[in-house]
Structure formats: C-alpha cells, structure tokens
C-alpha cells in the first residue's frame, strides 16, 4: 500500500520532466503539467482538473518565491494522489494576485476529491517544509534523472519531523 503522505512515493517517473522548454506562459506551463497527469492516468478529465487548479489559484498565490511554485487541485477527476515535478531552466513568469515571479521548479499536486482536508494538508505541508532546505533545492537543480529526483526527495524527507 502506498503511503499517501510520503512525497517520494506519489511522484512517478511519468510525471517528472527535468527539461521543460519552450514554455511561454503560466497557462501553458499548467497545461503541460496537467497533460502529464492525463497521460499517466492520474486524472480522467483535463478540463475538470484545470478548473480545480484555477479555483485554488484564485484563493491566493501558489508561487513560493525562490523560483518555486506549487499549484494544486483537489477534484473527483483525480483517481490517485500524485505529484508532478517539472524543471524549466529558462524560467517562466508565474503571475499571481500579488505579482508573482519567475519559476523554474514546479510541483503540481493532484488530490483525489474524497481525500479529507486533513490528509490534503499533510501532503501539502510535507512538500512545503521540504522547500526551505537549500540542499534539497540544489539537488533538484542538479538532478539528471527521475531517480536523482526521488533520491533528493527521500533525503529531504529525512529532515522532516
């Protein structure tokens, strides 16, 4: 049984892209990442999930400074909890109500509609906590393969209480 709270267990090889290029806008970025979920069978409907992502975006910025964004959506169209990770070395402007900024590391969370608020927060909080560790961020920039990403997350998760 997959432990739903451990990020390294819900990030899949087909939901990681370490060389995202040619992305010109936040919309295109979100769309591209949603496509990863669709191809991986994590979500059934692109439209429904996109709607959930934008509902969350409307509540407040998911841009976290330091070139990081964590868009997330909770929807019945999500079949299994999953995290997608994309690295976009050239950077994309991620606009938010507060202005936003350039992002290079993007984690997108797909949360099943039936997951409780508490579980949802646990997943989100684990990821958020990871993001303040410089070593973890450096490892994400250095990663060349999916396995490198998983190794970085596992190492980072050891720091968490």
């Amino acid at each position: 049984m997959v432990n739903q709270f451990v990020i390294s267990q819900v990030i899949r090889s087909d939901t990681v892209d370490l060389n995202l290029t040619g992305i010109k806008s936040k919309e295109q970025l979100l769309d591209t990442m949603i496509s990863m979920f669709l191809k991986a069978g994590v979500i059934e409907s692109r439209e429904k999930f996109l709607e959930a992502i934008y509902e969350r975006e409307a509540l407040g910025p998911t841009y976290m400074d330091n070139c990081i964004a964590i868009p997330h959506g909770k929807s019945m169209t999500v079949k299994t909890p999953c995290v997608a990770f994309a690295r976009c070395n050239e950077g994309v402007f991620y606009n938010t109500q507060l202005g936003g900024g350039i992002v290079k590391l993007i984690f997108m969370l797909a949360i099943p509609g039936e997951m409780s608020g508490e579980e949802y927060i646990r997943v989100l909080s684990r990821l958020a906590r990871l993001l303040i560790y410089e070593d973890f961020i450096a490892a994400l920039y250095k990663a060349e393969t999916y396995d490198d990403v998983i190794a970085a997350i596992k190492e980072g998760e050891k720091n968490l209480s």
Partner: peptide
C-alpha cells in the same frame, strides 16, 4: 499566512531548522 497554508508550514520549518 493570509495567502495559504503552505507558507505557514514553510515558516514553521524554517524557524525549527534555524
């Protein structure tokens, strides 16, 4: 944090780490 729970967790982790 007014803008979302994730920032509150990041600030908490940052203080604990510090």
């Amino acid at each position: 944090c007014a803008t979302g729970i994730a920032h509150s967790y990041m600030a908490a982790e940052a203080l604990t780490k510090a």
